[in-house]
Nucleic acid binder design. Structure first.
Lengths: 225, 225
DNA sequence: CGATGATCGATTGTTGACAATCGACGATTC
DNA sequence: GAATCGTCGATTGTCAACAATCGATCATCG
């Protein structure tokens, strides 16, 4: 018998959720920008309740915020929020790395290698967007290897915010980190059965990133913006 | 001027969410039990959309599951799920302990001491329910001390599931752990500025708990249930 | 008798109408 | 002129009707 996959039936709200999510993440809507249900309803040719349900969904991922009886708005970005996202991310990935290392299969090695190779490929020739994709994909792959459903679910939700601020930062000031060099210690740590090393490298990466952001912010402030 | 607190305006949805949450967590509804929107709507004398929105909210915390076009049901409990909840909880609390230790204030020490004292109080004379309350309260307090909004939010959501399986386990077989002894190493670690010790003690506690659960399950199976 | 297909009741998915609430603006008062 | 209050438009909150979908049941056919 042929191997079949379930036809995915997407409800209207799912479609709207996807569309809005992409809009926020890719910066087609500005942080803090106001959203009204009616407007979206009219623009998308879809019922207001449906739009509403979709917005409630996005609210869970903290991509939009709700002000009862007043309005919706795209969430805004602040240094504190970025710090929170990165530290939380680090904690989740720490657990993922430990679990992934413990139960790494041949198939898992292959997937991880593929994700790492992609980093190298886009490093040599790849646009900003593709570099971001590959980077996020590498981390996502590690978490998937943990085989921990709840962890994966929590992480995927957080990763939406990560992607959001990541793309936002890249638009402001593209980073020049060498993707595969940057991630190699993590990759090596997992493959060699040394989760502690991988975790340390990962957390250090984030600490460095946050430090760079901080300096950037200071410079920006001093120069008058 | 008198110190005022904002009048909390609870929407109908919030009220329903609370009620359903309590129902699930305190075991008034069995795991796997089917829920229909209409039934709740009629029982609570409230519109179906409102019920629906509330259920979507509970779905986020994974207390209920949705089967599109079919029905809602109270989530079910499995050993794997319990393991996932405890490991994820450990990872989040690990971050919380580190942050709380770093930035512990005098006020924080007081809150922590209060939470710890409560453990001792209910240890000496307290019903199962109160013991559970005090236990969860101690962990919650630590996370609050982290001052990490996203972490707190994520943890609170998970803690609902923790509370749910905790009360569920307690109803099946009340534990006899000595609450303050059990948590003292964590408490001491944080107060003495030794997060690593606190984290280790905490993770060890969960490992022991899971191991006990496992043995219990094995025994139960061997004896025919 | 087993497998396939049609029918139907039950339940969720979607929608537009109506109610409740908020915030801004202007009128009023001192 | 400044502070307060009332009014009103805009927006979300709630609801009940209608549409889409699913799963069980039963008829049909080989």
């Amino acid at each position: 018998m042929v191997k079949l996959s379930i036809v995915e039936r997407r409800s209207s709200v799912d479609a709207v959720v996807d569309q809005l999510r992409q809009g926020v993440i890719h910066g087609h809507m500005q942080p803090g920008e106001r959203i009204t249900e009616m407007e979206l309803s009219a623009a998308l040719g879809i019922g207001r309740s449906t739009v509403r349900t979709a917005l409630l969904e996005l609210e869970k991922d903290e991509l939009v915020v709700r002000k009862p009886y007043s309005a919706w708005a795209v969430a805004d970005i602040s240094p504190i929020k970025i710090w929170e996202i990165y530290t939380l991310r680090g904690a989740l990935e720490e657990l993922a790395i430990k679990l992934a290392t413990e139960s790494l299969t041949e198939e898992g090695r292959a997937k991880l290698a593929e994700a790492f190779d992609l980093l190298d490929k886009v490093q040599r020739k790849g646009l900003t967007e593709q570099r971001t994709d590959a980077d996020l994909n590498f981390h996502r792959t590690i978490v998937q290897l943990s085989n921990h459903k709840k962890l994966i679910k929590t992480y995927e939700s957080l990763l939406l915010q990560v992607e959001w601020v990541y793309r936002w930062s890249e638009r402001q000031r593209p980073t020049s980190i060498h993707l595969s060099d940057w991630h190699r210690p993590i990759y090596d740590g997992i493959l060699s059965g040394d989760p502690a090393a991988a975790v340390a490298a990962n957390l250090n990466n984030y600490a460095v990133t946050l430090e760079l952001d901080k300096q950037q912010a200071t410079v920006a402030e001093e120069t008058g913006l």
